[in-house]
Every structure is written in structure tokens, then in C-alpha cells.
Design a protein around this nucleic acid. Structure first.
Lengths: 205, 205
DNA sequence: GTCGGACACATACTCCGAGTATGTTCCTGA
DNA sequence: TCAGGAACATACTCGGAGTATGTGTCCGAC
């Protein structure tokens, strides 16, 4: 059980949080490329030195933010999947959870719009292999094991399905709040259709 | 009928081509962000002044390259689509043409991997609205008109389908040549399944 | 109680690359 | 033949990421 942190520790944690919050706000509003670290430091009422004390680099700062977001949001999606006994039902529940998360202003914008620009495709992919991509792979495996989709198929299906998630996330991230529910429903359809089409192509007996 | 170009005109066109070729090579190999304009100029055996004489900016140079590539490759895909009377057959023919183009080393890497990083999502989308995204929209419209997929559906389906194309393009762009044919076949499956699933959900009469 | 040291920053700097301003050469047309 | 513009080269500015170093403060050891 962790001891109560010292006064000092509380303060340093506070500036770390202030930096992360400032970065989250500015990266979502102006985008990663168009916000300087001096801007982030100014909003957090510190200087650039504080940033490089707490984080390795500008992409490093982004990655911490990324991990925080995925830890909670992707965790919720995984929980939604694992709560269902049927993998198809579970996958659709996780999809709904994911689409709702992307409707919230920060998650979709940072994780699916800014992350590839900030980290580059490869690093983004490596980061996602702990979260959304891993969950997607697990779900596809479970679906294949249950005979709901054809087995095998290589890396093309997970990659392309992940591209679908990214496109849906970005679409929702730029959708005004009053249209989110309708667009979420529209986004659901292609996934349902893909699952149905794959189910129809499962080899018999 | 255009007159034969002057000696001078030929030379300037030659440096323009050398710059575009150098940029295509370097952007493909090192990526847009990691190649400086001095590098491009050096490979073309000129200086940065020549670049800013012929092009507006670094993204501007990339966009010219982008247009050249899409003009030929997307034109071929559109031709493949329009050559078929049946929209489903045509769409799959265009898909095959697209997947072959992405197997070639430059097209997929520049248009689907580097372009979002170089231009940003919005500008990339605007550029693609003349080419791949336009073709995709036209194909979906034709499919809907023929009753092969449900009508309406908003912007979600084209956006998500475009995300699928991007993911497939990127996957093929990083696939070694000897595996390209197999991966292309694997990439085809999700699109076929999506079309089948959408066809099954068309409202009856 | 105090003193050394490490932590948590601030300040001041370097460095690289995009973009700009200006110079220079050569061709072209009047 | 000469004025002007095209096609570059050269030399600069400027912003932002990253680094090196300074400074105050707190904490534990003696």
C-alpha cells in the first residue's frame, strides 16, 4: 500500500498533470505539429525545462498521453467484449464502446487523428499493439475459433479492420456532438456487414 | 498544337523532373519528415533555390508528386471500373488495379503512407477528393443505384471504406515483392466480404 | 542544526531545417 | 544591342526541438 506522498511529491505530480492536461488540450485543438512545447509549458504555467525534466521528448510526451487514454478507453472496450459469452455479441459491444469513446472530444482526436502524425506509422502501430490493435486481434481470433469468420487469412484482415476503426474514429472526432449518435449508427453498419460477409464465407463442415 | 520547346524550356523542364524524381525516391525511402529540401536538391544536383523556383513549398512539392501519381494510377483504376457493365464486377476490377499499384514501390508509400503525414489529414482528404475518394464514392453510388448495397447511409461508409483502402495500401507498401501476390489476395477478402454483407442488408423491394 | 546532495525546475544556449531576400547569369524578343 | 525576365545560386532570417547549465528548495545523515 503506497504511503501518502510527501508535500514535494504532490507538487511535482501536480505540474506533471498540468503539463499532460495542457498538452491534451492544445494537441486536440491545434494539432500536434502546430503546438510548440513553449505553448504547452505556458498553459501549464511552467517552462520548457519542466517538460524535458518529466518527459523524454515531444513525441515522448504525446506517448504518455496516448497510454493514459488507451489504458482507460481501450480497457473499457475490452471489458465490454469479455463480458459477453458470444464473441460476435462481444465484438459489437466493444465496437459500440469504442465509437462512444471516439465521440468524446479528446480520445478519437488524439489516438486516431494526431497519433500517426505525432509518432509516425510504425511507432503508432507499436503503441497500438498493446491496446486497440491487440483487442482487435484477440476478437478476430475468438471469432475464428468460434467459426464465425474464416480461419487463417494472415495479417491483412486485422490491418484492414484496424484501418476501418481509425477511419470511424477520425470521422466521429470531427463530428459535432449533436450528430454523433446518428453517425455512430452509420459507422456500425459497415462492421456488421463485414462480419456477416465473413460469416457467409466460412468453409462448411 | 504545341510548338517544339526551346532549348531553355527543355532544360528547365529537365531540372523540374530531376527534382520530382529525387523527391519521389527520398520521400519513399526516408519518409517526408526525415528528408530535407537540401537533400532533394543535392540528389537533383541543384540547390534549394531551384526548388522554391519551381514549387511553392515542401508540401507543395509533395502535392505535385501526389497529383502525378494519382493521375495515372487512379486513372487506371477508374478505367478498370468503367470498363465493366456490372458495378460489382467493376468495383472488384478497380480494387485489383489499386492493389497492384500499391505493390509497386512508390505509389502506396507516397499516396497512402506519407501523404497524411506530409499534408495533414484535411489537405490529404481534399487532394484525394479528386482521385481515389472520388472513385470510391462513384462506385458506391453506382452500387447503390444497382441495388447491390443499401442506399443512403451518409458519409460513414465511404469514409470507412476509404480507411480500408488506406490500410491495404500501407500494408502492401511495406510488403516485400515476393509476398505481394499472396497479400493482395488476402487484402481482397475483406472487401468482398463487405460487399456481400452489404448486399445481404439491402431492403427488399 | 547544518550541511551535502539530489530533485524540480528555470534560463540560456545550440542546431537544424523551412522559408525568404537578393544576387547572378543567360536567353529572348523588341 | 539592350532591357527585361526566366532560371537558378547564395546568403540570410526565424522558429522550434533539444541541450547544457544555473538555482532554489527540501530531505536525510551526522
Amino acid at each position: 500500500m503506497p504511503q501518502v506522498k510527501s508535500r514535494r511529491g504532490e507538487y511535482t505530480e501536480a505540474t506533471r498533470r498540468a503539463l499532460l492536461d495542457a498538452a491534451a488540450t492544445l494537441f486536440t485543438e491545434r494539432g500536434f505539429a502546430r503546438t510548440s512545447l513553449d505553448d504547452v509549458a505556458a498553459v501549464a504555467r511552467v517552462t520548457k525545462g519542466a517538460i524535458y525534466h518529466h518527459f523524454a521528448s515531444k513525441p515522448g510526451l504525446f506517448e504518455v498521453l496516448f497510454d493514459e487514454l488507451e489504458l482507460t478507453e481501450n480497457g473499457a472496450a475490452r471489458a465490454a467484449f469479455e463480458a459477453e459469452a458470444d464473441p460476435t455479441v462481444g465484438a459489437l459491444a466493444a465496437l459500440d464502446q469504442f465509437l462512444r469513446a471516439c465521440s468524446e472530444p479528446v480520445y478519437g482526436a488524439l489516438v486516431f487523428r494526431e497519433a500517426p502524425l505525432a509518432l509516425g506509422w510504425d511507432a503508432w502501430r507499436r503503441c497500438e499493439e498493446k491496446y486497440s490493435y491487440a483487442l482487435l486481434s484477440d476478437m478476430l481470433e475468438a471469432l475464428a475459433a468460434a467459426g464465425r469468420i474464416p480461419p487463417g487469412g494472415g495479417e491483412a484482415l486485422p490491418s484492414i479492420a484496424f484501418g476501418m476503426l481509425g477511419a470511424a474514429g477520425q470521422l466521429l472526432a470531427r463530428t459535432p456532438a449533436e450528430d454523433c449518435e446518428r453517425v455512430r449508427a452509420e459507422c456500425r453498419a459497415p462492421f456488421v456487414a463485414l462480419l456477416a460477409g465473413l460469416a457467409a464465407s466460412v468453409p462448411q463442415d
